[in-house]
């Protein structure tokens, strides 16, 4: 049996191996040519080519095939010591030998690559399982206590007899545990996207429903009410509503974080060609040069993943006056008259 090493030798080492193996084959050939038939000696060379192919790169294997033919010609086929051939039928032998050598080396290399790919896939599946288990346990282990912390803080705030000081402390616990909860959720969402584990549950959604719901869910992040402008007669979106809402929530949270809770935030939606454009604008300092949209936190990375999973695009930049703008472009369904 041939054994396949995990890492094939480099081109140069492979060439070296091809030379050494050809020399060995030639040695055996020269020693046996007086008693063996020439066809059998050719087999020794082919065995050598197969060995080289199992250890090296395609290029080195090809070199081994050619070297084998040349060495066979020079040292075995009469007149030995030269490329000359007396009997023309040897040209056929050379041709067959070269073809068989090349064929064997390419098949051998393919086989080796398949074995390697299968081994890698098995490792990937195993590490994927470990990662998935870890994620779901982190999800449970972090979110369960957070739910109790948040709930208990909300219960404390509503007690009729607490002082203002205690109330402020309880509110701090509540707000920060909510923030941590959002962060944990974002981490889990992002890793699900990276693992390709996100399945889309598409249905018809009205953009204004999604925008209103996202604003309601981020209630408390802004002091000023969020301004909403949605183009009338905007077609329905055929999309995963939960995910699009998640993207909108992340855009709003991003605006709150970077422009501050006192900023004026503006949500706009309109049709642009066969896409719906969803824009969130703030009046903060905008994206600084070092803070490219991609590096500006997990929130926008999730937005991007959501839009791309729907075949859309995301853009982010600064407004000409003051503030930042993030735009999602989601394609409208081609089957818009269904329903």
């Amino acid at each position: 049996m041939l054994r396949f090493s995990d890492q094939p030798l480099s081109d140069w080492a492979g060439m070296g191996l091809a030379v050494v193996v050809t020399l060995c084959s030639t040695l055996i050939g020269v020693l046996t040519v007086s008693t063996w038939d020439h066809a059998n000696v050719a087999m020794i060379y082919l065995l050598g080519v197969t060995y080289v192919a199992s250890r090296t790169t395609p290029r080195a294997a090809t070199a081994a095939s050619i070297l084998a033919v040349l060495a066979f010609d020079i040292s075995i086929v009469p007149p030995s010591g030269s490329l000359m051939v007396h009997d023309v039928q040897y040209l056929v032998t050379f041709g067959v030998m070269l073809i068989v050598g090349l064929l064997i080396s390419s098949l051998t290399i393919q086989l080796r690559e398949q074995v390697a790919a299968r081994q890698a896939a098995a490792v990937a599946v195993r590490s994927e399982q470990i990662r998935g288990d870890l994620l779901s346990s982190v999800s449970h282990d972090l979110r369960t206590p957070l739910a109790s912390i948040e709930g208990a803080a909300s219960g404390l705030i509503q007690q009729p007899d607490i002082s203002d000081r205690v109330k402020v402390l309880a509110e701090t616990i509540l707000e920060e545990s909510q923030r941590m909860g959002r962060q944990v959720r974002n981490l889990l969402d992002m890793s699900r996207f990276e693992d390709g584990k996100v399945k889309l549950f598409k249905d018809w959604h009205s953009v204004s429903d999604l925008v209103e719901s996202a604003i309601e869910r981020t209630d408390g992040l802004f002091k000023e009410p969020v301004k909403v402008e949605i183009e009338p007669e905007l077609p329905l979106l055929f999309a995963d509503g939960i995910l699009v809402e998640k993207a909108l929530i992340n855009m709003l949270e991003n605006a709150a974080r970077h422009a501050g809770p006192a900023s004026l935030v503006h949500v706009q939606a309109n049709q642009a060609g066969n896409c719906v454009e969803l824009m969130v604008k703030d009046d903060g300092l905008g994206f600084s040069k070092g803070r490219a949209p991609k590096g500006s936190g997990l929130g926008l990375a999730i937005c991007r993943a959501v839009v791309e999973s729907h075949g859309g695009t995301m853009g982010a930049g600064n407004l000409s006056g003051k503030g930042a703008q993030v735009t999602l472009r989601l394609p409208l369904s081609q089957e818009a008259d269904r329903g």
Binding site: R143, L146, A147, E150, G151, S154
Partner: peptide, 8 residues
């Protein structure tokens, strides 16, 4: 939906 607040 967890986490929920007491008033909710």
């Amino acid at each position: 939906t967890k986490p929920f607040s007491v008033p909710e």
